[in-house]
Design a protein around this nucleic acid. Sequence first.
DNA 1: ACATGGTTCGATGTATACATAGAGTATTCG
DNA 2: CGAATACTCTATGTATACATCGAACCATGT
Lengths: 248, 248
Amino acid sequence: MAEREADRSVSHTVRAQLALRDLVLSGRLRPGERISELQAVEITGVSRTPVRMALVRLEEEGLLEAIPSGGFMVKAFSERDILDSIELRGTLEGLAARFAAERGVSSRDLEPLKECLSEIDGLVRQDPISVEAFSSYVALNARFHALLTELSRSPPLIRQIDRASALPFASPSGFVMAQSALPEARQILLIAQDHHRVVVDAIENREGARAEAIMREHARLAARNLRLALRNRTHLDLLPALALVTAG
Amino acid sequence: MAEREADRSVSHTVRAQLALRDLVLSGRLRPGERISELQAVEITGVSRTPVRMALVRLEEEGLLEAIPSGGFMVKAFSERDILDSIELRGTLEGLAARFAAERGVSSRDLEPLKECLSEIDGLVRQDPISVEAFSSYVALNARFHALLTELSRSPPLIRQIDRASALPFASPSGFVMAQSALPEARQILLIAQDHHRVVVDAIENREGARAEAIMREHARLAARNLRLALRNRTHLDLLPALALVTAG
DNA sequence: ACATGGTTCGATGTATACATAGAGTATTCG
DNA sequence: CGAATACTCTATGTATACATCGAACCATGT
């Protein structure tokens, strides 16, 4: 009921987009599998027009691939694709950090960043870290990265970072939950948090090169997490989207 | 007539997209101006459905901006936006060059790059450089950059570079024609060609950091060209798209 | 004169009917 | 028995009719 009410507030297009994205990311569709409009109509309950819009938007998001003869299929990713997407995201965030450092930010702008840092500190203090704390970390980490990106004050760059982070693999918090089951979990989070602290310090002192370098390295933590998760396949259920990863 | 024939081979959606893009880039629409679907229908001659698709695609291209209440308007760019877009493109091409260098490329892969270099050499040898030569340079330069991007062998990165270069401002050859009227023109082209040569050399010798740095610096030539073009507004007619640039 | 309300117009969002192209299958001929 | 061709069926591409939301403008009341 409440769901129907909430649904009515957003357009059919958005509803279809969310439903189809969840469907793809749940791994219930195999990579390369065609997703027909009629099929999508049945799933989402809206007509072909908004379904079509949703499919186009999911293609630009990178989750679907256009079939030359028409229509869309679920995109397949190699491990290398994902590692490259992470390096790409790190490079863009590095550029954002450098812009912030070079252009200077007011202490007022840095305040929410530092608040984020403190809150994360509170989470990683516990040992071992609870599953709830991991969830909170994911949210706070996403917030930190979003705030950092904003500091660049560059709409074109912010736009590109958003697009690069749209794929759940490439997003800053993509593999945090997957690592929650690993023994090294807390260690990795402590290192990540140190990166956060260093980049704020670098921006504050207008050290552009340092800010850029640390964000690049920071993204490589996600790459390490990915490799750990793929080697240690016991907790893959935490990341159903990895079903889209093929041998490649 | 021949145009009608050619038009029939592509979908109405693509036709509308091309027509509307030209319209926006010609500067006949002011930044911030709403572009209604019915208006677009009259211009393109196709019905609302493909027009709608074309508008969505032009939004992702970055030429249009969605209006919260629905519909699209022509996007406005500040000079800073364009400079940032160029820096962004340079950063991504730098990453592609580094990937190519680190991962290694066969001499067979480098062959078309070197051929491109030779052809450009032939063009910049003349002094002064003819307008036709500038046109040829634009084509060859685009080809060189495309080949270089491909060398990264990273589909996610190639995809992002294509998207970042979609805006004519940010594209590698965006300001070449604008500089054709400047006295420094030949000098700039010689420097650009030296960059091309250096990046190929760096990739060949697997010098990742050098390849990355030179591509970043290479993009800054475009930034210099932009500043020259904006200061020296006499030949702005060569780049009608600059009408989209607002004071900002 | 200004603010507030209502009404009207026009815009986009949505659904659906129709055209068409392509893929798959069955049938026929060599 | 295999291959080629024709046919059918289903998919997307397109056009259009209808619903709905928002904005602008006018009128009215304070």
